[in-house]
Amino acid sequence: MTATGTFTPRPGAAPLGRMIRAQAALETRMLLRNGEQLLLTVVIPTLLLVLFSAVDIIDTGAGRAVDFLAPGVLALAVMSTAFTGQAIATGFERRYGVLKRLAASPLPRWGLMTAKTCAVLVTEVFQVALLTVVALALGWSPQGNPLAVAALLVLGTAAFSGLGLLMAGTLRAEATLAAANLVFLLLLVGGGVIVPLTKFPDAAQTVLGLLPISALSDGLRAVLQHGAALPWGDLGTLAVWAVLGLGAAARFFRWE
């Protein structure tokens, strides 16, 4: 066989920025292409927002229902992408050797994690834009400072990402699939998303109020519904979850 030079070794990593951009773009396409993911991240939050705003099923307190529901559904959207979606996707990537194969590529692990975070943030931007438009169409009148909202969303994303990656990196993929959906459902009901926490008994309220979803929905509501400046208590709760979740994920995540 004569040498064609097609495979003559010229090894080398692409520039770091290019690798991370390429990985983030691929991760985002994978998220947006997955039908089950879209059901969870787009269809369910939108349906809940429309349904509970239009039909008076739950007593959401004084004021318009949409003003109570929109912040809760935004919190749900963050949870669905950063926690449930990311946990399930990463769990199966681990199961099918995707993470293992990428570990042998020139892309460093932290680069992969950065790319995953970018993909989650991009998806959240789409979600927030869509839900905002729908909520405004339903008569939503948001208050407060957008920067305070952004701070809550980012910190919420960090908290849920840590917990999602912890689950994906320690449980079997099937267990992650089941558990992530179950947690999604439980936190949807018990996290102040569409049902006010005041509907629960006092003792339960104290515990439920410490959940990351409660902190995020409560904080978003404080700003968007009541015009608060910065809800430090909720931000603090989210920060603690973020540190614990990301710390535990970094410690216990298994790549294969």
Binding site: T6, F7, G12, A14, N34, S105
Partner: peptide, 28 residues
């Protein structure tokens, strides 16, 4: 690897292009 290593939702050419983009001077 003996098996796996690719996103189940990725297209064949897309995945190969992506892998190429992680390298400085990939094969066509």
């Amino acid at each position: 690897l003996q098996s796996g290593g690719v996103y189940s939702g990725a297209r064949a050419e897309e995945m190969l292009r992506h892998t190429a983009s992680l390298h400085a001077d990939p094969v066509d």
